[in-house]
Amino acid sequence: MGWVLANLELIGSRTVSHLLLALPAIALSFVLALPLGWFAATRRWSRATLLTAAGLLYAIPSLPLFVVLPTIFGFGVRDALNVIVALTLYGLALMVRSAADALDSVGRPVRLSSTALGYSTFSRFWQVELPLAGPVLLAGLRVVAVSTISLVTVSSLLGVDNLGLLFVDGFQRGILAEVLTGIIATVLLAVAVDGLLVLLGRLLMPWAKAAGR
């Protein structure tokens, strides 16, 4: 506890940089997964291809990916952009599957009857499919959020500023309390963001209180 109290400022700033890496990645993977998931859910032929690609993407270990991406995109290993892109790819790999399942769960009869009622494909997506898929999408987003927040820490091995640096520093200097603090702070951050997402879900989808879990 003494270590935590003596280093509150450090923990605070690391938490902020942690969030600045994790939140854009979580948001980006959600936004990008929607059209891909919609494609997989409504165009049968694309489903297997997209989901296999997502599975393979997820099979790539994170630390190597942080090293490989810069050679493809040309940014530095320690750039925030590098970390965000890598985390977005992982989030996307998880989220595409959830988005496809979520939009799939809407069901063909519902889709056909909304078309019969005069919805265009575009308005059908926003007004019928998206709200109905909401609870399953939220469940997927929660998984992505929690695993992204935990994954950010790996980038600290490359020297990127986030809560993971507490592990690296604590390990190198033999400060057990620092490593423990890092673990607890990361888990608490994940739990907090998860809780906020549940709250957001309740606000946006008041009808799905029971299905949210």
Partner: peptide, 19 residues
């Protein structure tokens, strides 16, 4: 399974390594 997702791997490795 929820805890495993939230638990940072690197943290566990370094913690057990220190101990």
């Amino acid at each position: 399974s929820g805890a495993a997702r939230a638990l940072p791997t690197l943290g566990v490795v370094t913690l057990v390594g220190l101990v």
